[in-house]
């Protein structure tokens, strides 16, 4: 089993709150993503079993929603907004700066599996551009100095947890 008892409990609790169990598919995918960090067919199979809905319905829904990575990513998934409001405030250079700082290109993961860098569409942080999301947290009004600080902070956090 990939899904933990806690994730399964969360999924089941969700199912009780909707008129149809299928409505809990997206919450179930979210719960699984929060636990595992990405989604894949083995996870869909487990969700399908827990929810008692066909596997294909889980897989079909999951493939539509781009927020869930479909393969393993680093411990910290860095998602930089590349849409218009952020681009007008230097998003292209922000991406280039993080690429050179981490030594990876967009779509890649650092060799220590700590950081994956991707760029994404508008995250709704337009008035505090440029901005990025790392895992569940928004980081806004970014500057080089602020990026340095954030990356250092996450490295320390990971180090304290034994990597």
């Amino acid at each position: 089993m990939i899904l933990s008892g806690d994730t399964i409990r969360q999924i089941k609790a969700r199912m009780d709150r909707y008129p149809t169990r299928r409505s809990a598919i997206l919450p179930a995918l979210t719960a699984a993503y929060r636990q595992v960090g990405h989604l894949n067919p083995a996870i869909y199979r487990e969700i399908a079993r827990v929810m008692d809905v066909p596997y294909i319905e889980i897989a079909e829904a999951a493939s539509f929603y781009t927020m869930f990575p479909k393969h393993e990513v680093g411990r910290y998934l860095i998602q930089v907004c590349h849409n218009i409001s952020c681009s007008l405030r230097g998003a292209d250079n922000l991406i280039a700066y993080i690429e050179s700082k981490l030594g990876i290109a967009l779509g890649e993961t650092t060799s220590d599996k700590l950081f994956t860098l991707i760029s994404v569409e508008c995250l709704g942080g337009c008035s505090a551009a440029p901005m990025m999301q790392i895992n569940d947290t928004y980081y806004e009004n970014l500057t080089r100095a602020r990026v340095d600080e954030i990356i250092a902070q996450l490295r320390t956090e990971a180090g304290q947890d034994g990597g």
Partner: peptide, 12 residues
Amino acid sequence: LDLVVHTGGGAY
């Protein structure tokens, strides 16, 4: 009235 907070999956 029941109210459920439902979150999406990143689709405009």
